[in-house]
């Protein structure tokens, strides 16, 4: 493992893309930042601009309107970039997959590196998922 790889893993900056979600995953993701879970001890911070992002966290089902935005955002992020699909909706479309505006789960639009299922996944699940990904 080279130095850059090591540093990359030690310093993941998250950009949060909320699709057509029910908010739960987003809130639980924010919860990860807060005192009980504190992802900053792994060097993770939430960033406001996708230009700074190392990880694109996608939560919620993706509807027609989000779809193009998701693609744009994915393109606008600097590579290397990890993509995490959070929640049942992010992984599969979940409860909203039958809706008339549904445009496919995240991985039908952009390549996904990590799935964190759950409705919503607990923050612990999120952390565990990240750790798994980093040890891959």
């Amino acid at each position: 493992m080279g130095l850059t790889d090591y540093c990359f893993k030690k310093s993941l900056w998250l950009f949060h893309f909320a699709g057509a979600s029910c908010n739960n995953c987003d809130i639980e993701l924010l919860d990860c930042l807060t005192p009980r879970y504190d992802v900053e001890r792994f060097g993770m911070v939430l960033v406001g601009s996708v230009r700074h992002a190392d990880v694109l966290v996608v939560s919620g089902s993706i509807n027609q309107k989000c779809r193009s935005r998701l693609l744009t955002i994915y393109e606008q992020a600097p590579k290397p970039l990890l993509v995490i699909a959070v929640g049942a909706c992010g992984c599969t479309g979940g409860i909203f997959a039958e809706g008339n505006t549904f445009a496919g789960p995240v991985d039908s639009i952009i390549p996904v590196d990590l799935y964190i299922p759950g409705c919503p996944p607990k923050p612990e699940a999120f952390l565990a998922g990240i750790v798994k990904l980093l040890n891959k």
Binding site: C7, S11, R41
Partner: peptide
């Protein structure tokens, strides 16, 4: 800051990790 907010906070070398990582990343 982290301690004030009841958090653990980043490891000591965090600024350097950030820096090296950013160096290796794509510039847009």
């Amino acid at each position: 800051t982290a301690r004030l907010q009841f958090r653990v906070g980043p490891p000591m070398l965090q600024p350097f990790y950030d820096f090296v990582k950013l160096l290796a990343k794509e510039t847009i």
